[in-house]
Design a protein around this nucleic acid. Sequence first.
DNA 1: AGACGTACCGATATATGACG
DNA 2: CGTCATATATCGGTACGTCT
Length: 315
Amino acid sequence: MKREEISSSTTRRPLYERLDWNLFRVFSVIVHEESITKAATRLCVTQSAVSQSLRRFEEQIGCKLMVRNGNNLSLTSVGEKIYNISMSIYEEVRKIEEATENNVISVTGRVKISMISGFRSHDYDTFLGDFHRKYPNVSLDIEICSASEVIMATIQKRSSLGIGLIKSGYKNIEYKILLPQRYAFYCSSRHRLFGRTDLVIEDILREDFVAFTADQIGFPLSSIAFFRDSRGFTGRIVASSPNVYEIKRLINAGIGIGCLPDHIAQFDVDSGNLWKLPPNEGIVDANIVMLWNNKAQKSSAEQIFIEELKRSFVT
DNA sequence: AGACGTACCGATATATGACG
DNA sequence: CGTCATATATCGGTACGTCT
């Protein structure tokens, strides 16, 4: 079909029906760039395609929109009016994005989180609140378990994600640090070493010990056990728990010395209930991470939760 | 499956300004 | 005025989606 025939057959329909709305975008880029070639670069098409788009747009509108004066393009008076209209359209289209953002209420589903005890983070609490306000139809199911169980639940895809400790690279498991933390030895005010500033590591080697269930060899906190073994600790393990608050309770009870993350122990140290033991610089780093299985099929609720949690922790 | 419409590309033609 | 660089327009061909 020749161009004249296209023109005569399409002009019967009203302009708003035959208009190619995409051409508004191309037109506005040409005006911004003041060049068809630069507009082509920005739109990732060839100059030829942009030139043809402008010609089609002018055909559809029925008016010359731009004129060439030497090497520069300028708008005709009609072109300026159309440009103003295209800017208004652009603003309206941007509102579509806002409208869809507010429609996230439609996301439903369940997110199961396996996590260790004692993850204290204001940022995480804020994230949970924000997430719920944004996706009120997504329910959260939180299970507290040991660090090794967090990893197993993630590997076996029983949980959407885990929050815990990770020792090394597990196949298909990705992770991101949420909270850097360091473990150190502590004793309570009931313990005979409490308040002693002259202590060296040899003074604590024979002390009874409260251990994490997760510090067996091969699991995330095994570096604590490795540290005890390599430094010649001979004290008995008198109690153990996977829960950091139970460990703290046992230490507070004076049953033995034990390892705690500095940020968990700090409040009790400040209030005079716990005393930090040597080595003063702590013994191991055990960063709290979020971990997920990149081979697991995830619902949209799970995907969104993981992506937004990753985004909200910039470490 | 074939006709048709659309968008795009590369090649080429054309227009213009700068410069010697 | 001729040459060169740059910008734009046009043409023919291709790819792809839609319709019948």
